[in-house]
């Protein structure tokens, strides 16, 4: 599992969903969690973060800067190119999954999800990083 000190960034325009994701991650042991309400704000957090953000969990559909645009921005910047990025979305059409994979997403969670499903996805990302 991720080191509990890993800096986690949770991005969602819906406060209740940020609360839910943060709660599950706290149960997993994460202690350093920052929340942002859209991709633009999240980008500001990433640039200012020191030590750097070690895991991003982001919604897809958000105003100002969508999760996909945010992912592309993160992957386009060499410095954050390998930061684990999990996309959470209520819409899971095939073309969207393909688009996210092409943009470099590390894993994909479809709403509705249980706490165990989110935990499994986070663990899978960590496992992939460790191999």
């Amino acid at each position: 599992m991720f080191d509990p000190k890993t800096r986690l960034l949770v991005v969602d325009d819906m406060l209740t969903m940020r609360k839910l994701v943060s709660k599950v991650c706290k149960e997993l042991g994460f202690t350093d969690i920052t929340e942002a309400e859209d991709g633009a704000k999240a980008w500001e957090v990433i640039q200012a973060a020191n030590p750097p953000i070690g895991l991003i969990i982001s919604d897809w559909n958000m105003p100002n800067c969508s999760g996909l645009d945010f992912l592309k921005r993160v992957r386009g910047a060499g410095k954050y190119g390998k930061t684990p990025f999990i996309m959470v979305t209520a819409e899971a059409e095939q073309h969207q999954v393909v688009e996210a994979l092409k943009a470099g997403v590390s894993n994909y969670v479809v709403k509705p999800f249980t706490a165990d499903q989110l935990k499994d996805k986070i663990e899978a990302v960590h496992k992939k990083l460790s191999t």
Partner: peptide, 28 residues
Amino acid sequence: KMLGEEYKEITKDLQDGVAELLNIIFGQ
């Protein structure tokens, strides 16, 4: 039930939950 805390009133922080649930229902 969703957030694992007991709520006694609909606060501003809580109200977007109905939109989120509707988004998820729509996605399904």
